[in-house]
Design a protein around this nucleic acid. Structure first.
Lengths: 208, 208, 208, 208
DNA sequence: CCTTAATCGAGACGGTACGTCAGGTCTTGTG
DNA sequence: CACAAGACCTGACGTACCGTCTCGATTAAGG
């Protein structure tokens, strides 16, 4: 049972106008140069109407740009490599969108001291992606392609880190060939003929 | 022929005081909350004396915190895995230093629009690291451990991205076990029994 | 013929609640710090319900605090001095009430540009008071106490100005002794032994 | 021994520009409508440069408009009436200047809660005027014109209140005739043939 | 009983001003 | 020249009101 809304309801057209102005300005002038005054002006909206919805510029940008973080669906092509490429492509698409690339470092910088924000990112973004990866790996394990106990978290961070680094830090997203190479590098690490493990000593002897 | 310096020389004690204040404030309150006013006050220095040395806050922080980017020396332990761990550890140490972790996103955000800065990072940081990795791999190839033509740039970005993501975005640097796992994942991708290549189709058939 | 009221009638309890909140806040925090938001909150009333009754904060305060301006009745003690003291006391009581003293300058400031308001004050407050004074003087003239053609308007303004200055500007209302002194000063100016007149030259020679 | 000034000195041209803009805007649009933003814009000055000099809008206006309060010199024409007219004219000129009339109620409203401000007004404005009046009366007493122990404070407040009321509240300053009448009213109250006193009863008997 | 019309609480809305703060530049006097 | 101090311009910040508006829910009076 939801609390019934009282007072004049918010105008959803403003939400859309603000979001559009935010995304546009991010792409045109970047996070730092984008002031809420500018957003308000472009959206044809009072500045207070933005503050009514978001506590701060960082909140506005984060929630506007990264609304749909993480994998919307778990790929299942019956082949691990194809599944991995699908996962990476989803990430790449998300992080290399112009607005996202322009926003992410600013948001991270503004939220640097905010531990709750980090937890939120972990829960809403990393955890689902890791879960999706785990499911993909589990299916592959049943097909005998890989060992089931691969370190999914680390893999997600490696994949995510690489994509992030290219798209956000270097500003040059991975192309198709590089994506393929990245998949193969990662894939070889989880093949069933051996596996990364705490006991690193026995690892290579078993495979060769 | 250098222009001979005229007038009162700069006080090197100020350089040290400013650097110390910068690093301290970065760790205590973070990049965004750190104003040059605060730095000047803590360093017991006039604000103008900071601007005389650095053009902007981002320049101050970047040059103060990331003085020694990239590998100081190429590791050579006669073993690829050990060499890789040494490279990763150097990266990890650099990026997970409290001041660095606190500074990096702010610097990236402030330099977001500055393409020259990105080129500078590539030249001063990524290129040397990739060169070091290439040398390590080359030695390993001569020992028959790996194929020599591994995509060193991508590998560096994958390793760097992972370390960066953990230290900077998540705020929890890799531990020893995770470093080991990362090395093995990456290592398997460059083993000599096969190699990542443009022609992806033939790759796996050759190895299995 | 009044238009018969349709729809839900106004709740008179709200009028009272708003007035009480207004007076209370005026005394506690003063005119400037008193926002209609605060009044509404304290009165337990919607802000719109205030605007439905008064066009603006200045109107609310003016009509709430100065409901009964001017002399309610013309004093008649058979003695000019006593009558004057009664008139002054009425003024003093009105202007030195805590809410009034707190309100008056704010109201004047907000209505500064409003010529209609000035006319309203003249008609509702000054004119009746001057009329009362004129009547008092007229009676005194018939008793032979004073000249009948005293400049009543100026006298009212002198008396009103003095009371106003003490109560509103200085914040210390006249006490009884000062009221007595003020009466005597004014009284001597209108004694029948001479009179203020346009022809100032002949004035003093006649009296001494 | 004054502390020697350090740092860049304030630009006196800005003081003048701000004062001019303040006075101009006061006359054109009044106290309430005058924002510091407007003042800054018209003066061609940064808003911060205003806040550096004055803590608040009310301080700015008060110190700018009422720089020279009170009588600059004590009039001495050898005649009480002429002296009094001179004193009143000085007051009238000061209070009915367009900028002053526009400013005064706003300043009083904003300073309503500030007891320190009231004390300041008393000390800087009323006290000197009362002292001047006392001196004038004293000289007149030596010439035998009046009693020396007239209640100077009350007289000042009566004169000031009347002038204030006319200029500020009614917006119509006293003209010459009215000033003459006011002087005579007041003068008769302090004539040497009798004087206002605590013991009011004996007052008139002595003179008639 | 049901429509009509106004009031009520609540709160969104476009504005505007506030006073503070940062960034980066400029101008003093002193070494 | 460097340096300490601080003025200066620019422009953003987040808060608080203003007076208007739009909701859903009352509360009469008239059909």
């Amino acid at each position: 049972m939801t609390t019934l809304p009282r007072g004049r309801p918010r105008d959803p057209a403003l939400d859309r106008a603000i979001a559009a102005a935010t995304v546009g300005l991010l792409m045109e002038i970047g996070y730092r140069a984008m002031s809420l005054e500018l957003v308000a002006r472009r959206a044809g909206v009072a500045r207070a109407s933005i503050y009514r919805r978001w506590r701060t510029k960082a909140h506005l940008v984060y929630e506007t740009v990264f609304t749909e973080l993480g994998p919307r669906s778990v790929p299942d092509h019956g082949d691990l490599e194809t599944d991995l490429i699908a996962l990476i492509d989803a990430l790449r698409t998300e992080l290399s969108a112009p607005a996202a690339a322009a926003a992410i470092n600013g948001v991270l910088a503004d939220f640097a001291a905010d531990e709750a924000f980090r937890a939120h990112v972990r829960d809403r973004f990393l955890a689902p992606t890791a879960a999706a990866l785990r499911q993909v790996l589990h299916r592959a394990a049943r097909r005998g392609e890989v060992a089931a106990d691969a370190p999914a978290d680390l893999l997600v961070q490696a994949i995510g880190g690489t994509v992030f680094f290219r798209a956000v830090v270097l500003g040059v997203p991975l192309d198709e060939t590089e994506t393929g190479n990245l998949v193969r590098i990662v894939l070889d690490g989880v093949r069933s003929r051996g596996r990364p493990a705490q006991a690193g000593a026995a690892r290579l002897t078993a495979s060769e």
